[in-house]
Each structure stands twice: as C-alpha cells, then as structure tokens.
Design a protein around this nucleic acid. Structure first.
Lengths: 208, 208
DNA sequence: CTATTGAACGTTTTATATAGTAATCAGAGG
DNA sequence: CCTCTGATTACTATATAAAACGTTCAATAG
C-alpha cells in the first residue's frame, strides 16, 4: 500500500532518500541533501512528508511489505504440508533477520532508529506475521495434521520460542548454519508436541 | 569459591565496593571512594585486585553463585517429577532475569558492564546452567519420563526456546504474569514434544 | 622484605562552545 | 489561488577544553 498512494514528487523524494539511507545511513543523510538530489528546496520536502522520520518509515514499510509477502508466499504454497510450511516460515524469518543484521548494516541501523522512535510499528508487524503463522496452524488443524485450539495463541508461543533467532534486536553471534540448526531443534520439538496433542485428541474423543 | 580464597583486606574492599555498586552503580563508583571507605589509598587496592572491573567481577560471581545454587536446588529436590523440575527451572530462571531487570537496576547495569567487557563469563554461566538443566533431562530419561538421546543438546534447545524470557539482555515489557504465561506455553509444548518422543520410542522398540 | 602511600601519567568522561540540522513560515513566482 | 523558496528559529550533534578517573610506581613506613 505505501508506495501507491504517493504522487510523483513524493516518490521522487522517497527514491532519493532511500539511496542515501542505504549508502550513508539515516543519521548521515540530511534533508538538504535529499532536497538537492531532487532539485528542490528543503521546505518543499515538508509538503510531501511531515518529517524526516516519516520518509524513513515509508522506506522501511516498503522493505517490510516485500518480506511479509515472502512469508505469505510460504503460507500459500500448495502441495506442502503445514509442518513444512511452519518450518519454512520460521527459517525464512530467521534468514531475513540474519541478513538484515549481517549483510545490510545500514538498513539495520535505519530499522533500529525508526523502531526506537515508533515502537508501535514493530507491534503492527509482529501482529501481521503472527496472523500468517496462525493461518498455517489453522490449515494444519483443518487438515488434521495438528490439533490446535487457539491458532493465534500457539502462533505467539512459536514466535516466542523462535525469538532468539528471528528477532533482529538480538545479536546473532555464530555461523548461520549453526544457528539454523539450533532453530531446527526448536521446530522439531514443537512439531513433536503438536503430534502428541493430535494423538491425545484422537484417543480422548471416543472416551468422552 | 570466589569469596573464600580472599584474605580479610580483599573482603573488606569487596564489601565496600559492593555497597557503592548497589547504591550508585558501577560507573558512578570511583576507586578513590572505595579506598576512602576502607581507609586506604587507591594504590593499595591494586595489591588485592588487578582492576576495578575485577572487583565487579568478583561481586557478580558471588551473586550468580547463589542463583546457580537456587537452580541446583530445584534439580536436586526429591519427590518432584522431572517435568515439574524442568518447568520450575525455567520459571525460576525467568524470574531471576525479570527481577534483575525490573527491581535491581544497579545490579543489572553492573552485569551489563561486566559482560560487555568479559563476554566469556556469560558463556561460562550459560554452560553451568545448561548442565543443571541437562541433569534434569537425564534424570527424566532414566526414570523413563522422557526419551532423550542427547540431554546436553536438548537442554540447549530448551534454553534457546525460553531465551526471550530468560535472557537479561532482552527487554522484558509487559506484566510478570503475562510473560510467565507465555513461557508456560513454551514449556507445555516442549513437554508434549517429549511425551511424543517417548511414545514413539516405545512403539518402535518392539518393531526393531 | 612486605605493606602501604600518594603524586604522576595517560586515558576517559564531562562541561562548554561552536557548527550544523530539522522544521517553520512569510513571502515570491506562476 | 496553489506551489515552491530560502532565510530564520530552535534544537541537536560535533569539536574542543577542562576535569576526573583508573592505573602505575618510586618512595616511605613498619
């Protein structure tokens, strides 16, 4: 959504700002540089964005929209078991956090600056990602792969359990492969937990 | 161990420093203040501790020794199922981290300062705690409550899964009760995972 | 010889002055 | 009217000077 409701001038500003944000970082990019890149005055920038931070927010929103789309793709792929989707979802989320921290330091700095000033945005994203994960769980319940009462609560639990590997705020030390293996250990255990709950449900049903 | 190998003068220094660390924080405590409290010169402090940071390290070691003892007590209690021990262990670890962050800001600052300069100490403590948890798992395996191949690896997985709630480095927002409930959700799922593995093992055994 | 001192040293932290920046707004241009 | 400007303002960050700090060590005391 973010991109499309903007007029041409706003897009131009966003593009110029994005280039500088990625190259020099948020703190080292000035409004007058952005204005100069667009051949306009600093004052005019404020006709299109309320503040510098709002330009950054729009930029990060675009990035995150793409990442969320990636996670949705995983959830919507047909011919994959819910268990594999769950696994793929968490590994992809880990991979995104890992890359952001290790390979894209400027984007990481930008995200950090933004989220420290606008914490609600993080909550909003977490909520959206949780819904995608809850969708996978719900599908698993319907297909009878899992037995899940409250998909949203379980999604929260899974995200908590994977937090160490999926939160960009946590420092990721160690090799990618080693960290991924540890995450897989968590996923394995969770899937076995689901298997047990499913078995228990089927066993109980006739009794009740 | 830390406390006992020290002579009287060193204990006196440690005591004076501890009082100031807890009251004013590590950064706002100076070596000359500690010296004055002990009626000695700054230079003499260095006959008993190599540096200010080493005084802090000794102080925190004493704190942590008590906390580790608390966790060992949980593991060594008789008449409690391994599952309940596991739960109690993780909840206690969460509670310690929560208190350190919320109720003892100076101790938290001290820990942070120390661990940023001496990261190996954190690794050392994690290792010790993991061994205690692995002991609980091993007991569970022997009693046949769990089916666990590699207790140490599984302990690592559990600590990873609980990381969000047990790492002092992670900002704990929200009420204690709500956070504990989320942690319990993780423990529940993990225990169900163990139950499944146990069931699977018994089912497989006759076949092989 | 051992235990202690306190001035001296190099570094870090803090206080202050300076420069630069984000955001505003009265007015120019179309 | 509506769009845009750039000098102005209040604030923030950077650079510089001053104070404080951790640490050392030659000298002193017992």
């Amino acid at each position: 959504m973010p991109d499309d409701t903007l007029d041409e001038t706003a897009k131009q500003i966003l593009k110029a700002a994005s280039r500088r944000f990625l190259h020099y970082g948020y703190g080292k990019t000035t409004m007058s540089e952005i204005a100069k890149d667009c051949n306009m005055s600093t004052g005019n920038l404020y006709r299109y964005f309320p503040s510098k931070l709002d330009i950054a927010e729009m930029f990060v929103r675009v990035l995150r929209r793409d990442q969320l789309a990636q996670l949705r793709d995983i959830a919507d792929t047909s011919g994959v078991t819910p268990a594999d989707k769950l696994r793929a979802f968490l590994v992809a989320k880990f991979q995104l956090a890992y890359e952001r921290f290790h390979d894209k330091p400027k984007a990481f700095e930008l995200s950090s600056s933004l989220l420290s000033e606008r914490p609600k945005i993080a909550v909003e994203w977490e909520e959206m990602e949780r819904q995608v994960l809850a969708g996978i769980l719900r599908e698993g319940d319907q297909i009878d792969a899992f037995a899940i009462d409250d998909p949203d609560a379980i999604a929260k639990t899974l995200l908590d359990a994977a937090y160490r590997f999926t939160s960009a705020a946590v420092f990721h030390e160690g090799e990618f492969g080693a960290l991924e293996a540890e995450l897989q250990g968590i996923v394995d255990l969770a899937l076995d937990g689901f298997a047990w709950r499913k078995a228990k449900k089927h066993q109980m049903a006739p009794v009740a």
